[in-house]
Every structure is written in structure tokens, then in C-alpha cells.
């Protein structure tokens, strides 16, 4: 705890920085709207020349990708193409891996998240993440949801926390199923429920961006449908980036799609356009199932 405070006091507060850069961010967004498709919403996340190395091996090659606000962007591509690696760059989860090295800039609302003075813990608090396999903590359902709010001190009182837990569960569509067993273990839920619990947990921290790394790959079709509906609802308030192996899922839930291949973005654009009229031959091959 002591260490945390020191880091917080030394690093400039992210919020302050935000105020300073708000103007820039708006300018940037305005600048983009002039030369890009007018239907596109303002950009939340911009990536410039992202290279990622695992030791000697390069996993991403000069990724340039803009992710619009309050919409769902899906990243598709064959296994090992770097889409998960890119996703993990956005909340700097790759820092956890010793041998991983990232270069280039990723800006969220115009702020470089790889700025050395940025507090990575604070960054991650603003970006929720949902993983491939549901990973509820070995705690009660209530404590799973309350974990983030407690750490960040988001609530003043017990009642407020109860309210936040309830609203998060409601948003994740899980409230009806678990309201009578909030003290039961999170690991006792079914796979689909666990994944929605993880989404609720991410929402409870009040993030702006939610990253999802193949959130439905371990679920059956019914649970998948529930999660997809949920993603569609969440889109109004959150910027969502989802990695998926299911082309149908990408087509159903996302507004924009980026196709990754061998560590490069081959094509990105409106989902409908990518799926109906892909410009690149490789994209066409992939979405029609000829390879991958």
C-alpha cells in the first residue's frame, strides 16, 4: 500500500493530464472527421507504428489503427496473427510479460499510454478487460464485483457499494440469476454466468474502454448469444474492442472490423464493408474460409 501511494504522488495524475490535453484530443478528433468517413464516431484510441517483440521474435509490425468511441471494434484473423497481442497493448497488459517489448505510440483520448510518467495502474482502472476463459476470483460473487471499486475507493459507504454491485450485475444481465446467492462462490457459476460475472466486474470499475479477448470461445452457443446481446447493449456507454475467431460473431456485434495477418493489419473498415466487399484478397480468403 505504501509503495502505491508513493507512485501515485510522484506520477502526475492522469486526470489532470486529461484536462490539459482535452483540447488537443478534440482538435485531433475534429481533424480526423474532416478526412475520414463522416459516419465514423470520434476516435477513442489511436495506434501509431506499434511494433511488439517477444524476445527476438517480432509479433506486430507497424500497426496503425483507430478505434472509434462508443462502438464495437472487432479484431479478426488466424491464430498467432497478433490480434490478442495488440489488444493487450491497449491496457499495457504486455508489461506483465518479461520478454515483451513494445514500441510506437497508443493514445487514448490523445494521451500517450506508454508515456513513462503515466501510472499504468490508473490506466488499467479506466480500461476493463474480459479474458478468453472466465476467471472469477476464488471469492464470493459480491466480492468479485466489489473488488475493483474497493481498490479504487469508488464508493463511500456500504450501501453505495451494494448499489454499484447491483447495477453492475444488472448491466451484465446477471442480476436476476444471482441476486439470492451473492455470498456464494463465483467459481460455482456456470461458464456463461462466470463470463458475465467477469464483464460485471469490469463494468463495476467504471471503465471507458472494455477489451474482450475471445470472450465466448469457452462458451456454448446459448451463453454466447447472451453475451453478444450484452455487448450490443454496452456499446452505447463503452468503447469495446473484441478479439474473436468467429466471423459470424464479428459480423453480428461489431461496427468496425480489423483483419490481422502475420502481425500486420491487412484491412480495416466498416464491418459491413469488410464482410460484403473486402478490398484485399487475403481478407476475402479468410472471411470466406479459404484459409485460417
Amino acid at each position: 500500500m505504501v509503495a502505491t501511494h508513493i507512485v501515485e504522488s510522484e506520477a502526475p495524475m492522469l486526470d489532470k493530464k486529461l484536462d490539459v490535453n482535452d483540447q488537443d484530443a478534440n482538435n485531433l478528433a475534429e481533424a480526423e472527421t474532416t478526412n475520414v468517413d463522416p459516419a465514423k464516431k470520434s476516435t477513442k484510441i489511436t495506434s501509431e507504428d506499434i511494433d511488439v517483440y517477444y524476445g527476438e521474435k517480432q509479433a506486430l509490425f507497424g500497426i496503425n489503427l483507430d478505434i472509434p468511441e462508443n462502438s464495437v471494434t472487432s479484431l479478426i484473423g488466424p491464430s498467432g496473427c497478433g490480434k490478442s497481442t495488440y489488444l493487450r497493448c491497449i491496457n499495457r497488459m504486455n508489461d506483465v510479460i518479461d520478454i515483451c517489448r513494445v514500441s510506437g505510440t497508443i493514445k487514448i483520448d490523445g494521451n500517450d499510454i506508454y508515456d513513462p510518467s503515466l501510472d499504468v495502474v490508473e490506466l488499467r482502472a479506466r480500461i476493463g478487460m474480459v479474458f478468453q476463459k472466465p476467471n472469477p476470483f476464488p471469492k464470493s460473487i459480491y466480492d468479485n464485483i466489489a473488488y475493483g471499486p474497493r481498490i479504487h475507493g469508488l464508493t463511500e459507504s456500504k450501501d453505495e457499494l451494494d448499489e454499484l454491485v447491483e447495477s453492475s450485475l444488472v448491466k451484465a444481465g446477471l442480476w436476476k440469476e444471482v441476486k439470492d446467492r451473492l455470498a456464494g462462490p463465483g467459481t460455482g457459476l456456470s461458464g456463461g454466468q462466470q463470463q458475465r460475472l467477469c464483464i460485471a466486474r469490469a463494468i463495476a470499475t467504471k471503465p471507458e474502454v472494455i477489451l474482450m479477448d475471445e470472450p465466448c470461445s469457452a462458451l456454448d452457443p446459448i451463453a454466447t448469444a447472451t453475451i453478444e446481446e450484452l455487448i450490443d447493449e454496452l456499446r452505447t456507454n463503452y468503447t469495446i474492442v473484441i478479439v474473436t475467431h468467429s466471423m459470424q460473431q464479428a459480423a453480428r456485434v461489431s461496427q468496425r472490423t480489423a483483419f490481422f495477418h502475420l502481425g500486420k493489419v491487412i484491412e480495416e473498415g466498416e464491418t459491413t464493408q469488410i464482410f460484403t466487399n473486402p478490398q484485399n484478397e487475403k481478407t476475402q480468403d479468410y472471411i470466406t474460409g479459404r484459409f485460417g
Partner: peptide, 20 residues
């Protein structure tokens, strides 16, 4: 995945260790 889940919620390393 538990560690990443906790870190992803914006907790520090020692919070992750002691709480998860």
C-alpha cells in the same frame, strides 16, 4: 488468468498478490 484479471481491473502487483 487470475493475476491478469486483477491487474486488468487496475490493481497493483501487491494488491493482486494479497487479495487474489
Amino acid at each position: 488468468s487470475l493475476r491478469e484479471g486483477s491487474l486488468g481491473l487496475g490493481s497493483t502487483k501487491s494488491e493482486t498478490i494479497t487479495k487474489v
